[in-house]
């Protein structure tokens, strides 16, 4: 009997805090089970820089700059199933709390009006991705197949969700695992 093909999984954090990735590590013993079933493509857990063809992509964080857009599009192009993981990917989360402010005023406040920022200029290094005028949840930029909210979702919720996906069941997260905070 041949080994079943391993599911290829990629993960990334866009405008997020890596809290969802921490929570992914929080599934404890299930990590071994997961490692048995999946092979990781691009992820902070590997050192792969570009997302290749994958079965599942887990996206943490919302879309706050041009680089986020490129990475998200590459994930969408390569991942058969794309999942918004955590509050920021689902609804913009904390970074989106700037959305009612004018970006220009934000940049001025940070780079020109703050003591210690003596260059007095907004950085213009082309290496730095330009921020978007508002932070968007990922479903406002690409088609998203599934959503797992939570800030972060608990390890238990992530495991239940991922187990469903791996087994080919529609992921279902209900009380008490479903949380927005």
């Amino acid at each position: 009997m041949t080994e079943p093909r391993k599911i290829r999984l990629a993960t990334v954090s866009l405008a997020g805090c890596f809290g969802c990735h921490m929570s992914l590590l929080d599934i404890d013993d299930h990590l071994f089970e997961l490692a048995g079933k999946v092979a990781f493509d691009r992820s902070p857990l590997t050192d792969i820089k570009r997302c290749g063809p994958c079965d599942i992509g887990l996206i943490e964080g919302g879309v706050c700059n041009a680089e986020n857009v490129h990475v998200l599009r590459a994930f969408r192009a390569n991942c058969h199933t794309l999942v918004a993981l955590g509050a920021c990917a689902v609804n913009g989360g904390l970074p989106a709390q700037r959305n009612h402010l004018d970006l220009g005023r934000c940049l001025t406040a940070v780079f020109q009006s703050r003591p210690g920022m003596d260059t007095g200029a907004v950085p213009d290094d082309p290496e730095l991705p330009l921020p978007l005028d508002q932070v968007h949840p990922i479903h406002e930029v690409v088609h998203v197949d599934y959503f797992l909210p939570g800030c972060p979702p608990s390890g238990e919720a992530i495991w239940a969700f991922v187990s469903d996906l791996l087994a080919g069941r529609t992921p279902r997260v209900a009380h008490p695992l479903l949380h927005f905070d």
Binding site: A84, V90, N91, G92, A96, N99, H136, P137, H139, E140, V144, Y146, F147, L148, P149, R172, V173, A174, H175, L178, H179, F180
Partner: peptide, 12 residues
């Protein structure tokens, strides 16, 4: 939670 809303779905 009770109605298992996992996404705001629309554009904010």
């Amino acid at each position: 939670y009770d109605l298992e809303m996992t996404t705001p779905r629309f554009t904010h």
